[in-house]
Design a protein around this nucleic acid. Structure first.
Lengths: 114, 114
DNA sequence: CCCCTATATTAGCGTTTACTAATATTTAGT
DNA sequence: ACTAAATATTAGTAAACGCTAATATAGGGG
């Protein structure tokens, strides 16, 4: 084993190391997955895919407490998965961009079969 | 606020609650994301997308220790993201099915822009 | 100006997670 | 059978995470 680390393997290693260039970097790519990898946040995303929602409604829909939801929303916003806009008293959240839609939809289409 | 929980919102709530039917359930869907949400596991997946690899090579490519990698591989296998086959002395890992390919590829295509 | 509603923030706590180091298991070659 | 290589497992530990409860901030209406 020790000896058969071929050039092919070396190339894969380099490709990963230089992943900044062909992805936004392994770290940042997996960060997005980590955000979706929490059931409550997943529910939030699924709810927001139906349209813009205020915090209160997100709490109702997901059954989560206000504080917990608010913290999840902050993380999702920091990760640019979700965006917020103020409307008087309240804050309306929505999916940040179409990329998130594609990612989640693809995953959902396939997750039935996993 | 308290009062304006419309039928639309109720429907979203129900849809989430019955998510078993239109996805494999929020829990199981987000579990897959959680698996990909760990940088080391992400590297493993990216490496395996280039082809079948034995544990030793995965360690070399990712720069991880044997024990840690082995534990990640077990989790990935338990989640049916990866499959293993024995070849004499060693164990060769590969991506379990095409769904994983689609999910990861879609995510990577878009993650550049996040 | 005060109060109420909507949202955000903070601190503390228990759980989960990923790592390391050590050990066990399995297989190949001699 | 013995030894060495490849992989798996286990126990212990430190860090990360998500939750709750309490508190803070900000805006709107009387």
């Amino acid at each position: 084993m020790v000896s058969c680390f071929t050039e092919k393997h070396e190339n894969i290693k380099l490709k990963l190391a230089n992943s900044e260039e062909y992805i936004g970097g392994v770290e940042s790519a997996s960060k997005i997955f980590a955000m979706l990898g929490e059931p409550v946040r997943m529910k939030i995303i699924l709810a927001l895919m139906e349209g813009e929602l205020c915090v209160y409604h997100i709490c109702e829909i997901t059954g989560g407490k206000q504080s917990a939801i608010s913290q999840h929303l902050r993380k999702l916003k920091d990760s640019h998965i979700v965006k917020a806009r103020k409307d008087g008293n309240q804050v309306l959240y929505s999916i940040a961009d179409d990329h998130i839609f594609s990612i989640v939809k693809t995953a959902l289409e396939h997750s039935k079969c996993l």
